[in-house]
């Protein structure tokens, strides 16, 4: 039971924190149409997070005989309890950094959710099925941006290359198993690399080799950035406990 709860929380936290980061672009996008595009993706991610939190809340409530809701889990847990991947909590950086992170993450999420869809836990499988439609669009949108920037001007190529250097060390965590994970994530690595390579080839980008990979997020050991994300995200419920509107 606790394995399923932890797995569900990891999925929820990951979607929530990336959604929260992407939402910082709202009203700051490079152009109105893309501002709406990234905000739509944000809403998809937060919707996915809600589904997972609701399911986790049901399991925890039953398990511990308490009344836990999705809000309790999102607003009243501390950094060490969050299990999101480190890559989600990193600051947005520029547009290249944001779209590349989305691309790396969505490609992984697709493979993960395709496995999750086959899982015997029917609730997790159903959430995965519902989310896959959204994820496919996120990949389409973000991969086209990676190609556009990589195979664009000198400036755009520099920016996306910088983004590759900054983000690559955080992609290894996807495939490092945590003891509560119900999917064998290490087996997804080859497929993921191939989908990155296909797009990188078109974008004239190269995959970095022999890079040290950061990890810890899955077990609640985070970068210094998560605290800031949570203090903004949780501020209202911390200052006015139980506030509703």
């Amino acid at each position: 039971m606790s394995q399923t709860i932890n797995q569900t929380l990891q999925l929820a936290d990951t979607c929530l924190i990336l959604g929260q980061r992407n939402s910082e672009w709202c009203a700051h996008g490079p152009i109105l149409e893309q501002d709406i595009a990234i905000t739509n993706i944000t809403l998809d991610l937060i919707g996915q997070a809600r589904n997972f939190y609701q399911y986790a809340a049901t399991l925890i409530s039953k398990n511990e005989n308490k009344n836990i809701t999705e809000d309790t889990l999102a607003y009243l847990r501390t950094e060490r309890e969050f299990k999101n991947f480190l890559i989600c909590e990193l600051p947005n950086g520029d547009w290249a950094n944001t779209v590349l992170r989305q691309f790396f993450f969505s490609c992984f999420q697709l493979l993960l959710f395709e496995e999750l869809e086959k899982n015997s836990d029917t609730q997790l499988a159903a959430i995965a099925t519902k989310s896959l439609k959204e994820i496919k669009y996120h990949i389409k949108w973000s991969s086209e941006w990676v190609i556009r920037l990589g195979d664009g001007t000198e400036e755009s190529n520099n920016r996306i290359n910088n983004a590759v250097q900054q983000l690559w060390p955080y992609t290894g965590e996807f495939f490092m198993p945590a003891d509560y994970e119900i999917i064998s994530v290490s087996s997804l690595k080859e497929k993921w690399l191939q989908s990155i390579k296909d797009v990188f080839d078109e974008a004239t980008l190269t995959i970095p080799q022999n890079i040290f990979m950061q990890s810890g997020g899955k077990d609640g050991v985070h970068t210094e950035h998560l605290g800031y994300v949570l203090s903004e995200l949780q501020y209202l419920q911390r200052v006015y406990p139980g506030a509703e509107w």
């Binding site: 109105l32 149409e33 709406i36 595009a37 949108w141």
Partner: peptide
Amino acid sequence: SLHAADAQMAIENARDVYTR
């Protein structure tokens, strides 16, 4: 109407702006 760099982006922008 909307702005986009190419037809593909125009369709996606339209999807995001007009069919949400």
